[in-house]
Amino acid sequence: MYDKHILSDAGARSVWENGKKYGYQFNLTINYYRGLPLCCVDQITMIIDGEQVPYEQMYVQHRGREYPYLDILKDDFPTDFYWLFGEYLTVVVKNGKGIEQGIHHCKLTLGTRRSYTPTMVSVCEKDVTFA
């Protein structure tokens, strides 16, 4: 659901700390008609210009908190942090150097686990402008 639109152009840019670029970020919206707990995210895979973003560099920011991507996949991740319908989930990639400004070709795969259908996987492939 909403497959073509789950990767947003809004907020795609490098991120800075103490005057230094340390990575970049992009925003996702949920591929469903309701919100789900973050622990129901089964997969976020991002390929930028043909190269897959390493999972260990990915961090998920949600309502002022940050979690390593690999942590939200673990069995003991809390079940009451909700990624709500229509809300942005920010993925920060800490690659130590940011991303070059301009257009990049992105392919995002998002898998979420639901209560009564098999895990649904959405793929969104598009050009995103990183500011």
Partner: peptide, 11 residues
């Protein structure tokens, strides 16, 4: 929705 799989796959 009951979301019985919320506690991961093995539960």
């Amino acid at each position: 929705f009951p979301d019985p799989l919320m506690f991961r796959r093995d539960h």
